[in-house]
Nucleic acid binder design. Structure first.
Lengths: 231, 231
DNA sequence: CCAAAGCAAGAGCAGTGCTCTCGATTGTGT
DNA sequence: ACACAATCGAGAGCACTGCTCTTGCTTTGG
């Protein structure tokens, strides 16, 4: 009967209130962190009573899940935008562009970064709906390495110990069947290591150790790219 | 008048109660995570009333700080023990031994690991007393690389971009004046990257991606060692 | 047009961190 | 040996939290 955005005043009002709740929750998250996110405070700020909020989110954890999905999509979108902007450049430039976009997003949204890449909340296990948004930046890296492999080849796939071969082949089959297993293993490791660099900077482990974080990160990321075989 | 451990019944009782509080708190931390650590529950389990607990820890954050320091010392001790056991071996073996000790400790104490290497608690900033315990595993890695450099030399210090030279020299002056700046930069990066690998495994980012985490980690760590110039 | 569904509001429960006061116990200086 | 001071445990209480249940009101759809 109508477009997907206006199939009834009731449904639209629900959408708007849901969005307003998420917006206010995101504000509190950015201001105070996930631990101090209070349903009652969100409701208070929105001029409603706390119990009314439960019509939209059955529990605080469900609100957090919504914010987690949004955060994954936000960082994924930033990374994809940076990647598109470097579309014409070489694989190392594209790799670096995505990595720096991840770091920039993390520095700009520290609490949201902590929500998705920091310690998970105690009893909480992420539902499967978070998997696709969480995969976006990873898929970007896979695409970059795959393109490089197709176009110009990868430099020396480093020798793989025999004991890791089955696992590497399994990962390659799942993630990028056209890439050599050794490259896929190196890629997955570099992916995790990249977020180690970002996390250490963001969570204060680099205090009194690394001063010029920008340049240090750029260099470390370039070495990671080199490690997975990008020219 | 007496040994340092028994300079008065009152003081000793205080030590014992303090230790009992920390033990029970650590139990709850391991069982439920930092967010659900409740002063009242700790007091209840110890048969005292919650207000009495404030005679020993002025706030919940102070209790957490004590647990953080203990956790840093615990993982540092495990790493040092593993390092000592591999004292006679080559630098790569020692590097791998420490890395695996870190991972093993993390897998055995996930909530304590999250407490020290995960997202920091919201308003909390670590006091300077946490710095020495937090440095123990890092110092171990520095010692390994320094020994390797002294004994057998490091393989090709990778070329350092000019823009990073001042920062690398500053880090080297602070951390290991006898090492080439490029090696120190690579070492610091590898240090952060190692904890990226551990964190991704522990916090579920490797779910549906890496199955044989043990072997994958071993290989990734060996490549990190190679990246800092260890034979 | 009327029943059914969706909604906001309020009261209430169990729990939290933290403060303050009040006795009781303990340690110490004279 | 005694009195003074410091320390300690207990209880009440405040302001807050997540969450549930019930009560009415409004909107919606048959």
């Amino acid at each position: 009967m109508s477009s997907s955005t206006a199939q009834g005043a009731r449904a639209r009002a629900r959408m708007e209130v849901t969005a307003a709740i998420k917006d206010e929750a995101r504000r509190q998250l950015a201001a105070e962190g996930a631990a101090k996110l209070s349903l009652r405070a969100v409701a208070r700020e929105l001029g409603m009573v706390s119990s009314a909020l439960y019509r939209y989110f059955p529990s605080r954890d469900d609100l957090l899940t919504a914010l987690i999905i949004d955060a994954y999509n936000s960082i994924g979108e930033s990374a994809e935008a940076a990647h598109d902007k470097a579309a014409g450049a070489g694989p190392v430039q594209r790799w670096t562009a995505v990595a720096e976009a991840v770091r920039d997003w993390a520095l700009r949204h520290p609490h949201e970064y902590a929500l998705i890449y920091g310690s998970p909340v105690p009893g909480y296990t992420a539902p499967d709906t978070t998997v696709p948004p969480a995969s976006r930046v990873g898929l970007l890296f896979i695409g970059i390495v795959r393109d490089a492999h197709r176009d110009s080849g990868l430099t020396e796939p480093p020798p793989l110990p025999a004991e890791l071969c089955p696992e590497a082949e399994r990962m390659a089959a799942d993630l990028a069947p056209d890439l050599p297993p050794a490259a896929v293993a190196a890629l997955v490791a570099a992916w995790a290591e990249l977020f180690g660099l970002v996390g250490f900077e963001l969570f204060g482990q680099f205090n009194r150790v690394v001063e010029d974080r920008e340049r240090f990160f750029r260099h470390a990321v370039a070495r990671l790219a080199q490690g997975v075989g990008l020219a």
